[in-house]
Write a protein that binds this DNA or RNA. Structure first.
Lengths: 336, 336
DNA sequence: GGGCGCCTTGCAAGCGCGTGCAAATGCTGC
DNA sequence: GCAGCATTTGCACGCGCTTGCAAGGCGCCC
C-alpha cells in the first residue's frame, strides 16, 4: 500500500525521455534548461502527477522553506488574527507555516523550538512565551532565524518586533484627563508578559506626570472572565474609579459587561474605558470600545521581510523594530 | 555561515565511539541497542546538541509526521478554536501541524493540497472549502489520508466528520414553538456551505412539519456585519418575525446587536433567538445566546484517532462519522 | 569444550533530490 | 569547413537518515 506511492523525478525523466537532472533543473528557478526539454518535462510531470519532494529538496539545499509559528491561546481573537496574517504573508513569500501549540505548559516553548530544529525550519516566530536562553542560542547556532513578537527581550540574536506600548499608555492618560476623569485605574492580568507590563508602567508613569495616582489591579489569565473579576474588584472600592485602562480588549469586554450589567454603570457617561489590541469584538455595537490597534499587517510584513533579507548578523541594532499602535476612537471615552 | 550548521548523526557517532547506525537506532523506538551504547550516544547527542533530522527521516520512512491543516477565515472564533484543538491533539499523537491559509481565493484549496503533497504530509485535514475531485484522488493515490470536517461530501475516500445539523435545527423549532413563537425566520449567509444549508433545510422542514412557514433571508459572508444586515432586512418586514435561527453565532451576535440597539427589541421577550457553534462570545453577558455547541474536542479526537488507525481502505462505511451538537440553553429563548 | 541461539553491531544500499564538472550540442563568423 | 564560444545535457556524488543482512560477541546446556 504505502510502498511506492509518490512519483519521483526519475519516473518523470524516463517518460519525458530526458535525464533526471533535466527534471530537477526544470523545477529549479534559474537553472539551465532548453525550452523544448522543459516542455517535455512539464508534460510528463502533469500526466504523472509529479510534485517535487520538498523534504528531499530541503535536505540538499539546507533550506526547508518551513517557518515555525510558536503560539499559545490561539483561540483568542488577537492571536488568531496574527496567525492568520502571518501565514498569509509567509505563503506569499513562498514559505510554509508549521504551527506549534504551547498551551500545555510553560516549558513547551523550548520543546517547540526543538521541534522546529528537527524539521529544520528556516526560522521560528515566537508569539507567546519566552524560550530559555540556551535554546535560542542552539537555534541561532544551527542557522535558524528567530523572531520575537511583542516579547520585548534584550538578548541579541533574535529579531524583535515591539510596539510603543508605553507611549500608547500615555495617550490614554491624556484622553482620560481631557474627559475630566480624575480617579484612574489599570486592570491587568497576572500573565506579566513584557507588553502588558509596559502598558501598566507607561500608564502609571504618565498619570503620575500629571499628578494622578493609579489604582492597579491584577488578576488571573488574560481573558474575558478575568475582566469581569477585575470589574468586581475595582468597582466595589470606596473611591470608585471613573476611568479604567484595561491591558487588553478581552479584559475590557469582560470589564465593560460587568460594569453595565452587574453595576448598572453607564459607559462612557459614568466611566471611561480603553482597551488594547482592537480585536474584532471591540467594534461590535455592544462594546464600541476605544482602543489601540495592533498593527498586525505591519508586524507580519516586518517579520517575513526580515526572514527574506540576508542581513543575518547585523551588528546589533536593526535587529529590533518598534511599531506604532494607532488609537482607535469609538464610544467608550467621552469627547472623542 | 549556512555551511554545516546542524550536527549530524555521524558526528555524534564518532564522539560516542560507535557506528552511525547505533545513533540511528538509539533514536528509533523499538530498535535493538544495548543500554550501554544508548547511554553513550545520548550523552554525545546532548553535548553536541544533536536533533534527528525529520526531513531525512521522513524521506526514508515514507512518513513525514506532518499533517496539513487547510483553513480559511481562521481569525474567526470557531475556526481558531478548532485549529487550536486539532494542533494540540496532533502534537499529543506525535504529529506536527502545517497550516495553509486559503483566504485568498477559491482555487487555493487545490493549491494547498498540492503543497501538502510537496511536503509529503501524512494527511490533510480540510476545514474550509471543497477540493476538486481530481485533486483528492491525487492525494489518495499518493497515500495521503484526507479528513473533511463539516464538509458533508458524498465522495468516498476521505474520512468525513459531520454534525447532526438537520436534527439540531429541528430542536430549535421545538424550542421556539414551546416559547409561543409563530413567525419563524432563518438568517443565513450566502456562503452556501453544506452545514449551513443543512441547518436551513432542517429548520424549514421541521417548521413545516408543525404547520409553520419560515422566512428565509440570506446575505453576504458568514460574519458579524452580515448578521446586522440580516436583522435590518428581517426586522423591517410588515410581519416581523418573533423567532430567528441564525446559521452561526457570529451572525447571531450581529443580529442581536442590531435588534437591541437599532430596533430596541428586547430579547427574548419580544424576539427569541438561537445561533450555532457556541463561540466564546455567545456566553458573554451582552449576548447570553442559546446555541449549539460544536463538539470541538470530539471532532479533533475522531480526526487524529482515524489518522492513527490502520484501516485505510475500509469498505465504504465507517469512513464517515456523525457527531452530536449539544443544545446550550442561555437567555435568548424564553422558558429555558 | 563445543554447538547452538540470541542479542548487538557495523556495513552498505538507497530514499529523492540538487549541482559541479566535463562532454556534447548548436551557433556564429571567418 | 572549421575554430571558437555559449548553451544544454548527463554523470556521479552526496545531503542525513533507516534498515536488511551478516558477522561478531556472549551465555547456555548437553
Amino acid at each position: 500500500m504505502s510502498q511506492k506511492p509518490f512519483v519521483s523525478a526519475q519516473e518523470v525523466a524516463v517518460r519525458a525521455g530526458v535525464s533526471r537532472s533535466a527534471v530537477s533543473r526544470t523545477f529549479t528557478p534559474g537553472a539551465s534548461v532548453s525550452a523544448e526539454t522543459r516542455r517535455k518535462v512539464m508534460e510528463a510531470a502533469e500526466v504523472l502527477g509529479y510534485h517535487v519532494n520538498h523534504l528531499a529538496r530541503g535536505l540538499m539545499r539546507n533550506e526547508s522553506g518551513i517557518v515555525c509559528l510558536i503560539v499559545s491561546d490561539m483561540g483568542t481573537p488577537y492571536r488568531s488574527s496574527l496567525v492568520r496574517t502571518l501565514t498569509q504573508h509567509l505563503q506569499d513569500a513562498g514559505k510554509i507555516a508549521m504551527l506549534v501549540n504551547t498551551d500545555r505548559f510553560d516549558g513547551s516553548v523550548d520543546l517547540a523550538l526543538r521541534q522546529a530544529i528537527r524539521y529544520r525550519a528556516d526560522a521560528s516566530i515566537i508569539l507567546s512565551g519566552m524560550p530559555d536562553k540556551s535554546i535560542t542560542e542552539l537555534c541561532l547556532k544551527n542557522g535558524q532565524r528567530l523572531v520575537l513578537i511583542n516579547r520585548d527581550d534584550a538578548q541579541p540574536g533574535p529579531f524583535r518586533i515591539n510596539l510603543d506600548d508605553g507611549e500608547a499608555a500615555g495617550r490614554v492618560v491624556t484622553a482620560f484627563v481631557r474627559a475630566g476623569c480624575r480617579r484612574l485605574a489599570f486592570a491587568n492580568s497576572e500573565a506579566g508578559t513584557p507588553s502588558l507590563m509596559a502598558r501598566e508602567r507607561g500608564f502609571v508613569e504618565a498619570a503620575r506626570a500629571v499628578g494622578l495616582e493609579v489604582l492597579v489591579e491584577r488578576y488571573g489569565p488574560t481573558n474575558y472572565d478575568s475582566g469581569r473579576v477585575l470589574a468586581q474588584r475595582l468597582l466595589t472600592r470606596r473611591e470608585r474609579p471613573d476611568a479604567v485602562f484595561c491591558a487588553t480588549d478581552l479584559l475590557a469586554c469582560g470589564f465593560l459587561d460587568a460594569a453595565r450589567h452587574d453595576f448598572s454603570i453607564s459607559v462612557p457617561d459614568q466611566l471611561c474605558m480603553s482597551g488594547f489590541d482592537d480585536i474584532e469584538q471591540a467594534s461590535w455595537s455592544s462594546y464600541q470600545l476605544t482602543t489601540f490597534a495592533q498593527p498586525i499587517e505591519a508586524i507580519a510584513r516586518e517579520a517575513v521581510t526580515w526572514l527574506g533579507s540576508d542581513n543575518v548578523a547585523d551588528p546589533a541594532g536593526s535587529l529590533s523594530v518598534r511599531l506604532h499602535a494607532d488609537f482607535v476612537w469609538r464610544m467608550s471615552i467621552r469627547g472623542g
